[in-house]
Design a protein around this nucleic acid. Structure first.
Length: 813
RNA sequence: GCGGACGUGGUGGAAUUGGUAGACACGCCAGACUUAGGAUCUGGUGCCGCAAGGUGUGAAGGUUCAAGUCCUUUCGUCCGUACCA
């Protein structure tokens, strides 16, 4: 019989379905493992990145199941989002239809890979039941003050009549209609993630060694915590008068209070209220006002790339320590959203301040000794700094903060780069924000018993404006509080909200889906995710939001875990000809076609064999054939098996080739634990199995063959489950597919050993000796074998590394 | 700029605590079986050299009996980030 993957694979997929083989047990006394690969967006078809992601997760899930763990290995669909609306515009399909048809199709594609997912726990985030609980959480967050509504500046496309994410702005223009994007003040909903900044930062330490350090670093930088001094610049008397008494002072933040005596000017963001006031009251030259307005209207991205630009505002502030008057400028490099939108400028010790000061001929005053050239931005000893002169930067920072605090001039403060998460979108295909605008009560959350606030089905998606806004009836409702006429919120939630808590939803027994969002007991048992697997592209957004939601839901009393993902594996991209596979480049491989041609096992084997999971995977058709060839060989060698169980073998009676083969088999077995539990270097485990088969091929003992196949099928089942199950059923009644197999140390005991002989560290020859040879014998043999290189030399040192080598250190005698 | 990761044959990649570099696979070469083969099997394959031997993990130093592995410097590639005061 020859290897026909299609038959075998269909057969086993049906058996697993019938057996409900991958449903987790509700017995919470069992040891558990929660293995999660990031769920897919139902874009239409699966791609090789999915195959890789799920092959890794499935191997781990199957491994732990075999070890006797109760394994939760769920799948679902991250099914809200813009592509559904774009498809709706293009194909005149309802986003829901398009989405759920895609899900049905992709579910079949994933099934064909033989992935061991729980079927009963599958859900889509666009299911109304999922939305219902999400809306409840959001309302509870609102009630705790974690969610708030606020008006801020956003990217706005007038022709599409919608807000755009920064990512949707291409060179200042709308990604879809190419109209210039405007900055517009608009209300939106924000989650106060900054309130959790410290915990999100500190808990990264607990993930050290379990998450890739790169991801930890990226999150740390993203949170961007910095400590320093916040203090007020008080406007001079004339400046206050100029500003009509509307402003008296403004706050600035610095991480370098030690340089405060070097301040020679102060700069405000162009959006700063003082600047706005000056423009609105025509207190600046018309041309200057125009230029500043242009800076304000520039998108964040463009501004970041622009050259330094600024204008004097004709006002001054008083230096809090020297009493000197300092000129105030507005400058495009000052960010409105950080540290109050104003800075003290110390050109001598800050690169940006220096560049700006040089450009506009502002004074530069050195207050830190050190370095030859300015700007000198490292720590040093203070000079010309009043009573702090002579102190080192570090102590001066503390002293100046203490001094300012004592005098009521300022205080030590912490700032974050992290900004609150804007979660509202002017989109149809998302979870509605469950709020109502009441003319008398203001913003009111919907009543819990009325949830979910579901999307209307009868909408027309045109791509212009929010269909919820233009729907004739949907937004009209009664106020949950006073019962009067009111309007429903038409913004929907960012899709990242759904993916922030799905890992908790999976833990809930499906029998309780209707009654609960998250179950404390179920979550306590399953959380946290033992191994999370996904692409590095989610290093910040998704992984930060999911961590945040986990903590928030913990504080709302839904569960008790601090971190959602115990260990994280970031898989590399799948490449073809050195470039990421993409439709536009035309360098894709269709997983369906691959499975049809070679079978799912070959697809899985190749993706795990060609590279370690963390690295990029270069697609290679002949490599795929190599994987297929190995499976054919494996299938073929099943004929060699004569015993139906793990045989007992008399090691002493075997010939060298059989002993060698046994050693190779057990080496693979020994290696497997590390691979599945620690390194995920499936490529090395597969290589070890190939070596074992090659070694078995070179010997003829039936029992050794039986033992070898028994163990190799056991090892490979998580990777190539169909062929392994098929052969295992035929040969061993599947008994080798559960439990673990002990490593027999006797197989590693060798009668003779081969040692390398090196002279001065250079390998010259090798010697073979009985395994129990003593050091003298070894040295004598080595000297004899290396006589040629020892002529005329005096041996000054002899090193024997047992089982490895002999090194003789010599010099001319 | 800053932060991180990585440089090993023609290719993907192996190599516990420093201990025979190149496992395994692809490709290539030769042979066998074949009408034929892009099927299968056997053998070979880092580089230079007929060989003996030499040489070899981006480069240059260093530590060590011994370095792909540790240290210093340097070059290169990839990824992330972008005026955060």
């Amino acid at each position: 019989m020859s290897y026909t993957p299609s038959e075998i694979e269909t057969k086993w997929q049906n058996i697993w379905d019938d057996e409900a083989a991958f449903e987790p047990s509700s017995d919470h006394t069992l040891p558990k493992k929660y293995i999660l690969s990031m769920f897919p967006y139902p874009s239409g078809r699966i791609h090789m990145g999915h195959v890789r992601n799920y092959a890794i997760g499935d191997a781990l899930a199957r491994y732990y199941r075999k070890q006797g763990y109760n394994v939760l290995h769920p799948i679902g669909w991250d099914s809200f989002g813009m592509p559904a609306e774009n498809a709706a515009i293009k194909h005149k399909l309802h986003p829901r239809t398009w989405t759920y048809e895609n899900i049905d199709y992709m579910r079949k594609e994933l099934s064909a890979l033989g992935l061991s997912f729980s079927r009963t726990r599958e859900f889509a985030t666009s299911d109304e039941l999922y939305t219902r609980w999400e809306q409840q959480f959001i309302i509870e967050m609102y009630e705790k003050g974690l969610l708030y509504r606020e008006s801020t500046t956003v990217n706005w496309c007038e022709s599409c009549h919608t807000v755009l994410a920064n990512e949707q702005v291409e060179e200042g223009c709308c990604w879809r209609c190419d109209n210039p994007v405007e900055q517009k003040e608009m209300p939106g909903y924000y989650l106060d993630i900054v309130r959790y900044a410290d915990e999100l930062l500190d808990d990264l330490d607990t993930l050290e060694g379990k998450w890739p350090s790169q991801v930890l670093t990226m999150q740390r930088n993203w949170i961007g915590k910095s400590r320093g001094l916040a203090f007020d610049f008080v406007l001079s008397k004339q400046s206050r008068e100029l500003l009509g008494g509307h402003f008296e002072r403004y706050e600035v933040f610095t991480t370098r209070p030690d340089t405060i005596y070097g301040v020679t000017y102060s700069a405000l963001a162009p959006e700063h209220p003082i600047v706005t006031y000056l423009i609105e009251h025509r207190l600046l030259p018309a041309k200057t006002a125009e230029k500043i307005t242009a800076m304000v209207n520039m998108s964040e991205r463009d501004r970041a790339q622009a050259d330094k630009e600024g204008y004097p505002l004709g006002i001054t502030v008083v230096h809090p320590l020297t009493g000197e008057e300092v000129p105030v400028w507005t400058a495009n490099f000052v960010l409105a959203s950080y540290g109050g939108g104003a800075v003290m400028a110390v050109p001598a010790h800050d690169e940006r301040d220096f560049e700006f000061a040089t450009q506009y001929d502002l004074p530069i005053r050195r207050v830190i000794d050190g370095g030859k050239e300015l700007p000198f931005t490292t720590d040093g000893v203070l000079i010309d700094s009043g009573e702090f002169t002579g102190q080192k930067s570090a102590e001066a920072r503390a002293a100046i903060i203490a001094h300012m605090e004592a005098k009521g001039l300022g205080k030590g403060t912490t700032n974050y780069k992290l900004r609150n998460w804007g979660v509202s979108r002017q989109r149809y295909w998302g979870a509605p924000l469950p709020f109502v605008h009441c003319p008398s009560c203001g913003l009111v959350p919907e009543k819990i018993e009325n949830l979910p606030v579901a999307l209307p089905e009868d909408v027309e998606i045109t791509g212009e404006g929010n269909p919820l806004e233009s729907h004739p009836t949907w937004k009209h409702c009664t106020c949950p509080s006073c019962g009067g006429e009111a309007t429903r919120e038409t913004d929907t939630m960012d899709t990242f909200v759904q993916s922030s808590w799905y890992q908790l939803r999976y833990t809930l027994n499906p029998a309780k889906w209707e009654q609960e969002g998250i179950d404390r007991e179920d979550a306590a048992y399953w959380m946290n995710v033992d191994q999370y697997i996904g692409g590095i592209e989610h290093a910040i957004l998704h992984l930060l939001y999911a961590r945040f939601f986990t903590k928030v839901l913990r504080d709302l009393g839904y569960h008790d875990t601090d971190e959602p993902f115990e260990r994280l594996l970031t898989q590399g991209m799948v490449l073809m000809d050195g470039a990421k596979m993409s439709k536009s480049k035309g360098n894709t491989v269709d997983p369906d076609a691959l499975v049809q041609k070679y079978g799912a096992d070959t697809a899985r084997l190749f993706t795990l064999f060609a590279a370690p999971p963390q690295k990029e995977l270069e697609w290679n058709e002949s490599g795929v054939e190599g994987a297929f060839r190995f499976l054919k060989k494996l299938y073929d060698r099943a004929e060699k098996v004569t015993e139906r169980t793990l045989p007992t073998i008399d090691q002493g009676a075997l010939d060298e080739a059989s002993k060698y083969a046994r050693a190779k088999v057990y080496e693979a077995l020994q290696r497997s634990r590390d691979v599945y539990e620690k390194t995920f270097a499936f490529n090395t485990l597969i290589a070890a199995c190939m070596e074992a088969i090659n070694a078995l091929d070179k010997q003829e003992d039936d029992a050794v063959w039986s033992e070898g196949m028994y163990i190799i099928l056991h090892l490979l089942e998580p990777i190539v489950p169909h062929i392994a199950s098929e052969l295992s059923e035929r040969l061993f009644d599947r008994i080798n597919l559960s439990g673990s197999i002990p490593v027999l140390n006797e197989v590693f005991v060798q009668d003779s050993v081969t040692l390398a002989v090196t002279i001065n560290g250079k390998r010259r020859t090798e010697i073979t000796l009985p395994a129990d040879a003593d050091k003298e014998t070894i040295l004598a043999t080595a000297k004899e074998a290396g006589a040629k290189w020892l002529e005329g030399m005096a041996i000054i040192k002899e090193i024997v590394v047992p089982g490895k080598l002999v090194n003789l250190v010599v010099k001319p005698s």
